[in-house]
């Protein structure tokens, strides 16, 4: 719950913009590379795609969206309290790793650096989602809690039976939806 005089509106707008922009960037990059196949290729393969447009879109998109999400995460931490504040901080850390994904492609060295950064990105994103669900529950934002719980369960359910390539795409999609949902909630703050 927002207990300060800080208005979360601008940060919420940045969050919505980041979610929308990342969705557009990924869709355009995937459509631009006909060799990319869902379930067989990682999203990181777009960063080293033979189609220069897709590669640039993905890499620069990660950089710019990462910066936007970082700002949004800090804003969420500043405007919210308790678990939601922690969620904002963790989301900002995840955004730093997202920026690094765009900067260090999977061709760098033997690829382990990029893979490590990607795993850390998703790990911190997942932790941020869990903290956000707890924080929203305590604040009484039931619909937001329900949306976050649904997305968390989808990620866990897909982790059980799907390939890592498909799981990555679904996790990113869930992350985009979650970011849009929590940004929408922040647009209209509740006074204490």
């Amino acid at each position: 719950m927002n207990v300060s005089n800080r208005h979360p509106g601008p940060f919420a707008a940045i969050g919505l913009l980041a979610a929308f922009a990342f969705a557009v960037v990924l869709i355009v990059a995937i459509n631009g590379d006909s060799a990319w196949v869902y379930g067989e290729n990682m999203l990181s393969d777009l960063g080293i795609s033979d189609v220069q447009m897709s590669a640039d879109l993905f890499n620069y998109g990660c950089l710019i969206v990462g910066i936007l999400v970082f700002v949004y995460g800090l804003g969420k931490a500043a405007c919210e309290t308790e678990c939601n504040r922690a969620s904002g901080c963790i989301l900002a850390i995840s955004a730093i790793f997202l920026i690094l994904i765009g900067y260090i492609h999977s061709d760098f060295g033997n690829g382990n650096t990029h893979d490590t950064i990607a795993i850390l990105t998703f790990l911190f994103l997942f932790i941020a989602m869990v903290l956000s669900a707890i924080g929203d529950w305590r604040d009484g934002a039931r619909i937001n809690t329900a949306i976050t719980v649904i997305l968390i369960l989808i990620i866990l359910g897909c982790a059980v039976g799907m390939s890592i390539e498909a799981l990555e795409v679904i996790t990113v999609a869930c992350g985009i939806v979650w970011l849009a949902a929590i940004s929408s909630k922040m647009i209209i703050p509740k006074k204490a």
Binding site: T145, A146, I150, L153, I154, G157, I170
Partner: peptide
């Protein structure tokens, strides 16, 4: 009362997983 929405959310998640699988 607040737990019913958790049940409904888990139900919806199962449906979406069924779509994905």
């Amino acid at each position: 009362g607040s737990t019913i929405i958790v049940l409904a959310a888990v139900c919806e998640a199962a449906v979406i997983l069924s779509i994905l699988y």
